[in-house]
Design a protein around this nucleic acid. Structure first.
Lengths: 255, 255
DNA sequence: CGATCAATTGAGTCTCTTCAATACGCGTGG
DNA sequence: CCACGCGTATTGAAGAGACTCAATTGATCG
């Protein structure tokens, strides 16, 4: 057991869906990187720029977003410690969106060429990174549906479920109690609603006993009920991914 | 110049953003595959199933979609000849969405193991495929924004622009005149509106002279005006991708 | 020439937005 | 320690965009 390395959490995340042997892990740890501590609302990536680095979140939260021609913002994903944020950009030349920190953040910046090289030299690593971007894409698809076809109530419930589930999987919180690291305005931009309406829906979720709020801390008294309210199924998170001996049935049952 | 091969169009698509040498192309052509001709509305992939094949569209159109708990459908992308449809699934075990044909379709089915093998054995091919899924993901992000933050008018205009642009890039139609291969109901499911409202918006786009309709054939008299109406910028399609000697400025200028 | 599916149109309704005011929480400076 | 300021959250009232329901037209096909 080596001493803790800033990329360990990210490595574990990759390993949770794709096989990595000890050499692969060491190769990732050996990736030249610079650690940076960033203030809230710092840009990690800017739309239209040519990113030179991929980065992995070590602590803190970040979000991906775009802005329409008339200034409306849409958040397309939220990221937490252990997430690689910019594998997207490792092979795309010009960034098509922004990534900004939601809180203070520690991030490890790895140069693009280094990422490209490791993904070529170490097939396991390349595959793990590809898989990771495929799971991200699956989450985008779910968000398209969330924003396109669910009403405000389930839309917000759904986001709360996803966040809970992912935090738990990452070992960062219990699924039934966590702190949502964003303002209601940001929440609104994530679900395609106005902050005012988000406020009312949160109040209603609370009133119906689906969540309990204390500032931004959320407690979920009855997970099952929130899942139903949010029309949430974790399939799109591909949590069972990479457990080859699991029959399809087992994955089904997990709901 | 070999005789035409069903995968040629897909190969050209990959090569348009990632370098492939003659050996790489031959390797793709040599991929064992079965051609299938499918009726309209056939499933190419089903949510919850364990896909055994990746497929490339040779002719016809298809779409990706999911269905909410109460039966509302959301289309998350539309695919055309030359698109690899299921690289997504090459490394994800359980499909998180459906893919269904929009028209009659010819598709080349390649086994998952074969795809995984070629992507490992031939780094150029692996990289091209990865890049292709990254571009798909970029399109999903744009759709999140389209559905989340644009009103019905620009939302539909945006979709019409995207489709025009992609058809043109694929050499399947002129950008200013093409046939939209879907019903208004499907269009509605793609933009998160009702068919009734889509009908009204199309009528309005027509009335304002942004499009001319003759059945499902669309003509665009003034491309610039439609771009503006749809708040459309092609950046997210990453068309300039893989032209390494282009400075950032050139990409900027393309709008 | 029905039968069927897609497109179109009208009328009334509802979710979510907009505008606007107020309350709350927290850090800063006096 | 309190006052002020600012960002965030909350609440009310009115309006608008999109939906629902329902009927009609049009196109295609056996």
């Amino acid at each position: 057991m080596a001493s803790p390395h800033p990329l360990d959490r990210a490595i574990e995340r990759l390993a949770s869906h794709s096989h990595l042997d000890e050499d692969d892990r060491d190769a990732i740890r050996a990736l030249p990187h610079t650690m940076r501590n960033l203030d809230t609302a710092s840009y990690l990536v800017r739309e239209g720029e040519r990113p030179e680095y991929c980065c992995a979140l070590v602590s803190g939260f970040a979000y991906r977003h775009k802005v329409t021609g008339d200034g409306a913002r849409q958040i397309m994903s939220i990221h937490m410690p252990g997430d690689f944020i910019d594998l997207q950009n490792s092979f795309l030349d010009i960034s098509d969106h922004n990534v900004q920190s939601l809180t203070r953040v520690d991030a490890a910046f790895v140069s693009r060429p280094a990422v490209r090289e490791i993904s070529r030299e170490r097939p396991n690593v390349g595959r793990a990174m590809w898989t990771s971007t495929l799971i991200d894409a699956s989450i985008f698809r779910e968000w398209v549906m969330n924003v396109g076809r669910r009403d405000s109530f389930s839309r917000i419930a759904h986001l709360l479920c996803e966040f809970a589930m992912r935090l738990q999987r990452a070992g960062l919180a219990e699924a039934h109690a966590y702190v949502l690291p964003m303002t209601q305005e940001q929440l609104a931009d994530a679900v395609g609603l106005t902050p005012v309406h988000v406020n009312r829906v949160l109040k209603e979720l609370d009133r119906q006993g689906l969540i309990v709020r204390k500032k931004r801390a959320i407690t979920i008294p009855d997970w099952q009920k929130l899942l139903e309210a949010g029309d949430f199924s974790s399939r799109y998170l591909h949590l069972d991914q990479g457990e080859p001996h699991l029959e399809a049935g087992a994955a089904e049952r997990r709901a």
